[in-house]
Structure formats: C-alpha cells, structure tokens
Design a protein around this nucleic acid. Structure first.
Lengths: 217, 217
DNA sequence: GTCTATAATTAGATAGAC
DNA sequence: GTCTATCTAATTATAGAC
C-alpha cells in the first residue's frame, strides 16, 4: 500500500457519469451556501441543469447525495493525512507537513469542507457509521504521530489527546471562516498555521509564566 | 463602565416572562440537537409545554427566536472576553485568563455556543448585522491585546491577526465536538487549551526546525 | 395568553410518457 | 435518462374562540 498523493483536481475525479458529477458540484454549492436542510432538491437539480425529478435517477434521496459527498470528502481528507504521515523525517517534520496540507485543504475546498465538518447530523445511519469510522481513523493517526514524537523527545506535551484535538481544530475551523475574498492564500495560511501548531507541540517548552491556575488538575 | 463578571446562572437571566424563558430553553435544545432548519416550531412549542400557536405570542417568527438567542449568546461571550481583558497583569496573563474562560464557556454552554457559532446563516438581516458587529468587536479586542503583548515584548508572533484567529478557533471549535459524556471538565479543558494558546504566542520562540517551507511568502 | 382549527405554501419523492 | 405533472405530507404562520 503505497502512499498516494491527494488527487489534484478536486475531491471527485472518479465519480461515474458526467451528470452525477454535475449533481455533486451543484449539491456542494447549494449545501455550502444554505446548509443541507435549507437546500431543496429542486435547487440542486436546477443548478445541475436538470428537472426536479432528474436528481432521483442518480440518487435515491437528498440525504443519499449528502452521504456520497461526505464520504468522498472524508476520503480526501484522510488520504491527505496519510500522505503527510508517510513522509520521511521526524515527527515535527511530518506534523508540519500535515497541518500545512490539512489547513490548505480546508481553505481551498472550504465549501466541501464545511459540508464534511458541519453536516454530520444530517447523514443517514449507514453513512454516519462509515463517516464516523473515517473520522476516528484520522484523529487516531494524528494522535499516534504526536505520541511517537513525544516518546522520541522531538515533541513535548503533557496532553497528547487534547493537543491533537487542538491541532485538528485549527484546520477544521478554517472551513467555517475562510473566504477566498480574504487576503491570504490557502498555501500561506497552511504554513502560518503549521508553525503555530508546532509551537504548541514544541520540544523546547517555552515555559510561559504559570499564571492564574494554581493547580493543574 | 466597570467590568462585569459573566452571569453565573446561564446566558439569559433577565429575559422577560417565564414563558419566554421556557421558549428560549426549548429552542436551545431543539436547535442544538437538529439545527435551526431541521427544527419545527411545533417541536419548540411542545418542549416549552405550549400549543403550536403559543410560540407566536412571544416571537414574531422562528427566526426571530433564533435572533434573540444569538444576540443573548453573543453578548455573554463578549462580556466574558471584556472581563478577562480587564484583569490586571501583562498580556500573557490576560490572554491566559481569556482562553481559559472562552474555552470553558464553549464547553459548558456547548449547545448555546453551537447555535451562536454555527447558525449565523439563518439570521434575519437586522439580527445578522447586529451579531456581526459583536463578532467584529470580540475579535478586535483580542487582536488588540495580542498586539499590545507583542509591542511590550511579552508575546511573540509574526502574524498577530492569524494568531488571534487561531486562538479563537481553539475555543469556537470546542462547541462543535464537546460532549459532557467526555472525560474532561470545561474548566480543565480551558486550562489545557490556555496553556496551548500561550505556547503559540510565547515570547520565547521555540524555533521549531524550519522544515519543508522554503519561502515564507 | 392560550387554545383549536386551518389557511397557504412548499417540501421530498413518484408516475408514466418519450 | 430526462421530462411534465402530480401525490402526499409537513411546514410556518394566522384566525378567532375562550
């Protein structure tokens, strides 16, 4: 199983028919703008250049379309993480590459990422199970790398689990606020955030003056 | 204008009638569980012990109820930030207190916080304007403190704006994933995240090995 | 201020021709 | 595979009695 670099041309290169691809693109736009529940199947169909009924030839239901989208999006994010963690070097290097790519992806594909990260509630039971497994796997992979770094002495944190959450939060939250109208490019944002993430995990503890917390429970 | 500590008993102590409060509580539960658009006015009314029509005596519309909720929630978050920034001491101390409280609030009140942070799209135009102003103010206050710290030499970052975003992201994203079923208390999570945030901004640059980014645009 | 009843609209999904 | 036409159900909100 060789590490695959993330597909360059967007998250769904291999989706079956051209019409299915148009529907996925239309759904991304619509769900991204208004959210899943506020989007009508008519709106999706219209954006894809189809009649209201046309959608149902390709998808069993509106939520089946969301499910497909969510699975494809999660697979892309997971692939990107696996690729970064397969790079040579030490844990700081791999995590720097990981955050760079993870943040850049959430900025570049912020519309898809918003659906991936914020529409989990609307998934059908089966899709929800599959997606939850992918999410657990992604977080587990990153946490394992953090723990390897701590064990090797190249990273330092007393709370690997929470630090992992924090690192991923930086990337995920980008999807919430990012706008291409803003000043920074996805790539630049990725580098800035990767530097910040490494400072959180750095082996040289900056020992910030312990301030107002007497005890650390 | 003396700094007020955050109200202890939840975000809406001073809301008019008991029925209005029940409706707000019911809306928080319902919006938090299913999201604004997937929640029906019947559901809210039922949770509040009212008939479907009862809601409209107290609120003009479903979105007016969301608007009230969002304004009250944003006011609470803003108050908490203003309080932390009014504390004596240097910028690291104030920001540590800020992140501790901000994170703890997003965990403790994760249901309200989820609505505050993730249902902005569904606000009516007038509510959206008012809420956007509160959000700009909150972010501006934090960024100003970061810049003061950098100027004073007690904090260090080359990107105050992005670092501020990152610090706030840590707190905001807690509302997305936090569950009271998890192991850590809001207070403990607040302290852990505050330590992480200060490491990001620490004046002793840990100089993490500059890895794979040749240029920093 | 609360209720029952209902108006007005719109949603997701299907039938059946082509 | 795509269309037009439509079914069925659910939604927000209002009317008017109490």
């Amino acid at each position: 199983m060789q590490p695959q670099p993330p597909a360059p041309e967007g998250p769904w290169g291999e989706v079956d028919s051209a019409t299915s691809r148009r529907l996925l693109g239309a759904a991304v736009e619509a769900f991204g703008e208004r959210g899943f529940h506020a989007t009508t199947t008519r709106d999706i169909a219209r954006r894809a250049g189809l009649s209201p009924a046309g959608l149902y030839v390709h998808y069993r239901s509106k939520s089946a379309l969301l499910g497909h989208l969510s699975r494809v999006g999660h697979a892309a994010a997971l692939r990107l993480v696996e690729h970064a963690l397969s790079l040579p070097g030490d844990s700081p290097r791999r995590l720097h590459a990981l955050v760079t790519a993870f943040v850049a992806w959430h900025a570049e594909h912020h519309t898809v990422a918003r659906i991936v990260q914020y529409e989990l509630r609307s998934l059908d039971a089966e899709d929800a199970r599959e997606v939850a497994a992918m999410r657990r796997r992604l977080e587990g992979l990153v946490e394992a790398e953090v723990r390897r770094g701590v064990d090797a002495g190249t990273l330092s944190t007393q709370h690997p689990h929470q630090a992992t959450r924090a690192v991923l939060s930086l990337g995920i939250d980008v999807a919430r606020w990012y706008s291409p109208a803003g000043r920074e490019s996805p790539a630049r944002l990725g580098r800035i955030y990767a530097d910040l993430a490494l400072r959180m995990l750095s082996a040289e503890p900056p020992a910030p003056a312990r301030l107002d917390d007497q005890e650390t429970v």
